[in-house]
Design a protein around this nucleic acid. Structure first.
Lengths: 194, 194
DNA sequence: ACGTCCTGTTACCGGCGGTAACACTCTGAG
DNA sequence: CTCAGAGTGTTACCGCCGGTAACAGGACGT
């Protein structure tokens, strides 16, 4: 039964499988199952497992695909702009734009491997982004590494939580939310009159 | 076979079941299974389901138990202190203390129902806390509701993300982390020299 | 012609959340 | 005393999940 699929090339096959996984993730969100992905690709489960090892392997490969562009964009935003506040605004804006354009993909990236065994060698998207931001902060201002790390993780968590809330309730426009979060980061809460 | 358990009282029985669930959650974290909880309580699964409906019902009841004291503490911290910065420090400190004292319980509260069907009537701990903080902010400074909501969710996300990172890496003391996060909220990043 | 590798399948495993169906005891009415 | 019924308990099952063993058949070098 070696018909209809003349793909001898492993890499090309892999891309086709990831295409199928992508379609299912966009349809089912983080609840996408291996069986559904295999069916979508027109193959059976063991092939998936031979290519990706296990579910977290497939998820990692798919996340890599989604992530590359986004992380590049964010890194670019981090280095752009004239003032620091401008940089922060652009970076948060880029993040929220990604959420807005592809909510299911965002949910998959951020909320898929919660409560996972955690010994996975695949650092999650959130962690990678946090570390990246921490590095950015450490080089921008000369902060001790502990401070930069705490801030990096904290800021990413802040934007993600606000993004989740925004996705669910959809109360404000993206621009407004960017402005609120930027203001918060620049101490607007601490200095507001009571 | 109605032996060894003279508990005719539904409420008391419920507490006993929650005690068992508590033990298993402390042992297994968010991966605790219904079968394990039933076994720990010395009963069979259907009894659990008759008492709590389904897994999210049990989780909600257990979360309620964990949450009551913590939310009270946090609300008290929000209203305490002399300066606003003092209040923020105390509140973040109370949150991180809870993480430090009972990490498994914290993990259960924050990371158990991720990727859940979401139509659950049980608002998660994170959401409840965010709304509570948003209300606090809205009454403390007169901010428009959208701003207070965005800030509430963002700040809770920030502290949670930093807390998760702290739990995993354990790099700093609680007091240090509280100081870093408070400084961040008061604009230390925005005003640091580059 | 034949063993071997590769690609593909079906069919299974254990564990999960959740439930149907049945067993036993206790109680109250006739 | 007897018998229906309500509770309370159990076992055994369902479907779905992630993951794998075991097998089927074509491609190919010797």
């Amino acid at each position: 039964m070696n018909d209809a699929v003349p793909l001898r090339d492993r890499a090309a096959r892999r891309e086709v499988l990831l295409d199928a996984a992508d379609r299912i993730v966009r349809r089912d969100g983080p609840a996408a199952s291996m069986a559904a992905i295999a069916a979508e690709a027109g193959i059976s489960k063991p092939i998936l497992y031979r290519h990706f090892g296990d579910k977290s392997g497939l998820y990692a490969a798919l996340a890599e695909r989604y992530t590359t562009r986004l992380l590049d964009d964010l890194q670019a935003a981090l280095r752009s702009g004239t003032t620091r506040r401008d940089r922060v605004e652009r970076t948060i804006g880029a993040y929220l734009s990604a959420i807005e354009e592809e909510p299911q993909v965002y949910r998959f990236l951020v909320h898929s491997d919660e409560a996972a065994p955690a010994q996975s060698q695949v650092r999650s998207f959130t962690r990678r982004l946090s570390v990246l931001l921490a590095d950015g902060i450490a080089t921008e201002i000369d902060a001790p590494p502990a401070r930069a790390a705490a801030w990096g993780h904290g800021i990413v968590g802040m934007v993600q939580a606000a993004g989740d809330w925004w996705l669910e309730t959809g109360g404000a426009t993206r621009t407004e939310l960017v402005e609120e979060l930027t203001a918060l980061l620049f101490g607007a809460y601490g200095t507001s009159p009571s």
